[in-house]
Amino acid sequence: MNKKLVALFSILFFVVIVLAACGGESEDASSEEGNDDGSSEETVTLTLAENHPDDYPTTVGDKKFAELVEEKTDGRYEIEVYSGGQLGEESEVLEQVQLGTIELARVNAIPLTEFSESIGVLSMPYLFEDEEEKWEKLNGEVGQDLLGTLDGSGLVGLTFYDSGERSFYNNVRPVETPEDMEGLQLRVQSSDLAIAIVESLGASATPMEYGEVYSALQTGVIDGAENNFPSYYTSNHYEVAEYFTVNGYQGTPEVLLGSQDLWDDLSDEDKEAFKEAAMESVDVQREAWAELTEEAREAVTENGSELIEVSDTEEWREAVQPVYDEYGDQYSEWIDRFTE
């Protein structure tokens, strides 16, 4: 073979190699850019703010929600949960969610009354007959309609999470009936409704920061307070207030929510996926809450607390009727729907 033919074959071989390489690069680029219809397969990463620790029940619920969203959207959306208040306190987080700088958050329902007065109904005493009725209503149509009252605030309510039932505890005497509350000085949250509830039961209400309660109990500034079992235990209040009346007078839930900016960017299909994921995460969150409550209950009992079980709350419900007389008109529509 003469030199000209050798050169020609060499050139042809080089051209084939180059074309093959270019074809491979074109195929790779196409798979990265998306499908033939132009849609992108790139994963969108979202942020969810949580102010409780990593192993707390609401955080457990957040993580299950994130897992389900990724699963239901075939990996197109990934949610990173920032627990322990890394992104700020609830008030700061709510502002960021409204602005769209944080896409998702878990907050208590109480601060949401700033954006929807109607949500305040969830703090009314003895609103539900029992836990079964409560969660049937919150997970049902009326609960979703209540979340819908956030429309126009820049916030979108996805579902409710459990935060337990609040009860009274003190260091003076066992409290079995409303009459036993007479004369007790109890710490409450700084809200007119919280004060009205305690005073309707014959006790005196003292609004106070939560961090001051232990020393106030210890020094006799107050006789007692109110909260759920996990808080009673983790705050060590059981050390200075040994009588815990298990009567679950109030159970304001937590709320998982998103920003309006995020919601407007989602397709109808993805909105449905996010809603389904939120609702399906509730059982996991509530199971984690039940386990934590039982652990706290056992711990305070072992450490000497006396638990006074109230099996019939009828007389307690009658005692707080003045609260319904005062606030009933404000929440009448929702009280009717939750109790019908």
Results as ranks from 00 to 15, higher is better:
residue 326 E to P: 07
residue 299 A to Y: 09
residue 73 T to M: 08
residue 161 Y to C: 08
residue 257 L to T: 09
residue 73 T to P: 13
residue 338 F to R: 01
residue 180 D to E: 06
residue 1 M to A: 04
residue 56 Y to P: 05
residue 236 N to Q: 04
residue 332 S to T: 11
residue 267 S to M: 11
residue 218 Q to R: 05
residue 18 V to H: 04
residue 133 E to F: 13
residue 339 T to M: 09
residue 125 P to S: 01
residue 222 I to E: 06
residue 39 S to G: 03
residue 12 L to F: 14
residue 42 E to D: 04
residue 107 V to S: 07
residue 204 S to G: 06
residue 244 F to K: 01
residue 228 N to I: 14
residue 236 N to H: 02
residue 300 V to A: 13
residue 241 A to G: 10
residue 4 K to S: 12
residue 263 W to D: 07
residue 11 I to C: 10
residue 41 E to V: 11
residue 334 W to Y: 08
residue 257 L to W: 11
residue 98 Q to Y: 11
residue 34 G to P: 07
residue 141 E to P: 01
residue 255 V to N: 00
residue 321 Q to T: 13
residue 241 A to N: 04
residue 335 I to G: 03
residue 337 R to S: 01
residue 306 E to C: 00
residue 153 S to T: 10
residue 4 K to Q: 12
residue 319 A to T: 14
residue 258 G to F: 10
residue 63 K to N: 04
residue 116 S to A: 15
residue 111 P to A: 15
residue 75 G to W: 15
residue 276 E to W: 12
residue 126 Y to G: 09
residue 54 D to F: 01
residue 263 W to A: 10
residue 132 E to S: 12
residue 32 E to I: 10
residue 213 V to M: 15
residue 161 Y to Q: 02
residue 148 G to T: 11
residue 184 L to F: 15
residue 24 G to I: 15
residue 292 L to E: 04
residue 218 Q to V: 07
residue 315 E to A: 07
residue 24 G to S: 13
residue 183 G to A: 04
residue 253 P to L: 10
residue 274 F to R: 12
residue 241 A to F: 05
residue 121 V to T: 13
residue 297 R to S: 08
residue 234 T to P: 00
residue 153 S to Q: 08
residue 70 E to A: 13
